[in-house]
Design a protein around this nucleic acid. Structure first.
Length: 303
DNA sequence: TGACCTCAAGTGCGCAGACT
DNA sequence: AGTCTGCGCACTTGAGGTCA
C-alpha cells in the first residue's frame, strides 16, 4: 500500500472488515455496525479497491475470507483493539462510582476461594461493580480473553502463558483433609495409611487439581475411592461426619478449617505445586478498570 | 490577513431492482 | 435469501473570491 492508498484508509472500513469476518454475512455485519446492507456492500467495495483483493467471496456457507483476508485479520484486529484500549485508557476508573460488570473465568474451587472475600470488598469499595463468572473450556480461554468475552482468568492455567499476560498470586499445594476426630488426626500420614484410608474423589474442573490427581495416578498412588462427586463443595461436609478423606488444595482446605473441625495432613508423596495466577490479554494491558481489579486481586490474595 | 461565502468535486449512504 | 449495482440525495471538503 502506498501513501495515496493510506490516505483513503477509513478506520470504519477496518470495523467493516472485522464485522464481516466474524459474521460471514454483510447483512448481519451491517446490523452489528448499524449500517444497511448496501452501505456494507459499498464499504466492502472500497476495501476491495483499496487492498486490490476480493477479501470475501460468496459461497453457499456465506462470505468466506480469501488468503489475503486471512493474512490481514490478526493485524487489523490487534490494531483496532489497541486503538480502543488506548482511548479507554484515557478514561479514569473510579471504583466508587463505576458501573461495570467484570467477566471472570475460574474453576469451582477458585469460585469458593476467591469470590466471598472479593465480593465483600467490592460491596464496600465499588458498589456499582458486578461480577459474572463464566465457564469457558481451557482450550478456549485464550480466545475468550482476546475477544474480551472474559476480562480475566484466574487459576493454574500454564497453557495461557504463551498468549496472555500473567500476574502470579500464590503457590498452592495439596493436603489430605480429614475430620478432627479421625484416627489419623495428629499422626504423621504415611503412604500406607494414605492408601488404606477411604477417600472422596472430586474430579473438579480446576486444572491444577486435575494435574495433581493425574500425577498421583501416573505415580501408582491408587487411593481407595468410595465416593465420587461431580463438584467439591459437599465433600468437606461428608468428611466432617465420617472417616473419609479428601485431597484438596491447601488454600481451600484451610478455608474450610476455619472452625477447626478438620485436620490437614501432609501428603507423604512429593506432589507438584500449583501456581495460581491471574491472566489477561496483553491488548487490554492499559484498561484502567481491569488493571484496578488485577491490583485488588494481587493485594488480597498475592503472597 | 483573516473571516466568511459560494461552488464544484468527492464521499457515504439508502432505495430499487438485478443477479446468484 | 443474500449480495451487487446504478442512481440520487445529503453532507463534507477544498479552492477561489469578496470584504472588512
Amino acid at each position: 500500500m502506498n501513501e495515496k492508498n493510506l490516505n483513503s484508509v477509513d478506520l470504519n472500513l477496518l470495523r467493516v472488515f472485522l464485522a464481516i469476518w466474524e459474521s460471514g454475512s454483510l447483512t448481519v455485519a451491517g446490523e452489528h455496525l448499524g449500517l444497511t446492507q448496501p452501505a456494507m456492500s459499498h464499504a466492502l467495495a472500497r476495501l476491495r479497491r483499496l487492498l486490490d483483493d476480493p477479501l470475501f467471496v460468496r459461497t453457499p456457507a456465506g462470505m468466506e475470507p480469501t488468503a489475503t483476508a486471512e493474512r490481514l485479520f490478526e493485524p487489523i484486529d490487534t490494531a483496532l483493539a489497541l486503538i480502543r484500549t488506548t482511548l479507554h485508557a484515557q478514561e479514569h476508573f473510579d471504583p466508587g462510582t463505576a458501573e461495570r460488570t467484570f467477566r471472570l473465568a475460574m474453576s469451582d474451587m477458585s469460585e469458593f476461594f476467591f469470590l466471598p472475600p472479593l465480593l465483600a470488598r467490592l460491596e464496600r469499595e465499588a458498589p456499582g461493580v458486578k461480577l459474572e463468572v463464566v465457564q469457558v473450556p481451557v482450550d478456549k480461554l485464550a480466545d475468550a480473553l482476546r475477544s474480551r468475552e472474559i476480562d480475566l482468568a484466574i487459576g493454574y492455567l500454564p497453557g495461557l502463558e504463551r498468549d496472555c499476560s500473567t500476574q502470579h498470586l500464590f503457590s498452592d499445594s495439596h493436603v489430605c483433609l480429614v475430620r478432627a476426630r479421625h484416627p489419623q488426626a495428629g499422626r504423621k500420614l504415611t503412604l500406607a495409611a494414605l492408601l488404606t484410608m477411604k477417600h472422596v474423589f472430586v474430579p473438579s474442573n480446576a486444572t491444577g487439581h486435575r494435574m495433581v490427581e493425574q500425577w498421583l495416578t501416573e505415580s501408582g498412588v491408587h487411593r481407595h475411592i468410595v465416593l465420587r462427586l461431580p463438584h467439591f463443595t459437599v465433600a468437606p461436609e461428608i468428611v466432617r461426619g465420617t472417616d473419609l478423606a479428601v485431597l484438596l488444595p491447601r488454600s481451600i482446605a484451610e478455608r474450610f478449617n476455619r472452625g477447626r473441625a478438620y485436620r490437614l495432613l501432609e501428603i507423604p508423596v512429593a506432589l507438584p505445586s500449583i501456581d495460581v495466577n491471574v491472566y489477561w490479554h496483553a491488548r487490554f494491558d492499559a484498561d484502567q478498570a481491569v488493571r484496578w481489579l488485577r491490583d485488588m486481586l494481587l493485594g488480597m490474595f498475592g503472597k
